[in-house]
Amino acid sequence: MTWLENNSDWVVELTIQHLFLALAAIVASVVLAVAVGRVAYVRPRVRQPILAAASVVYAIPALPLLIVIPLVLGVPLRSPTTLVVALTLYGTALLVGTVVDAFSTVDAGVRDSAVAMGYGRQALFWRVELPLSVPVLLSGIRVVTVSTVGLVTIGALVGISSLGTLLTDGFQRGITSEILIGVLMTMALALALDGALVALGRLLTRWQPRRRRRARTPLGSTEVIV
């Protein structure tokens, strides 16, 4: 582990870059998926086309997606924007189905009561539907988070620097410990963000009875495409 001692500054720098790339893609995925999923939920007519499109995008492997994006957007291949856009598309595709499921779990009675109490469409969404869909939503966001943190490493193949750089650099120079550090740091980052999401979920779902608030693992229902 002398390699780590000699390169700790670089590892910290790459970890921070990795974190920012992942966070940008995760936040953008969540916002986009909630918006698109909301439309799919409210309008059953477009639900099937939206879900079908999501499954097509999700089926495209990440590296080819990364290579096609510069052509469409006109940004350089090595730009961080390319990676964030690719991972956002991916994350959104993965999450849209869960968002529809999440809104479907909101009890119709609760919704009707809110309407009867005079909630408008906006208030209904922000103060009733969104908070109540948090548990299911969060299980999907956790899957996207773990997957996105891992996928950021692929950017290193086209020269976008992140912890993935340790994987490509370590491979080219034949340094096993460098790759190991890259793998372990990426996993640690994924687990840390996952833990943060669980904590956030607890804060946001105070209304749930404690014993029913069992954390869902990233290997939940979203993983098997049904």
Binding site: G164, L167, F171, V183, T186, T217
Partner: peptide, 23 residues
């Protein structure tokens, strides 16, 4: 199994590939 599979899921695929290629 769920815990184990979750851990495998968090491993970056590129890391596993390069590591095994070196070994």
């Amino acid at each position: 199994v769920v815990a184990l599979a979750g851990a495998v899921r968090a491993i970056p695929t590129l890391g596993l590939l390069t590591l095994l290629a070196l070994l």
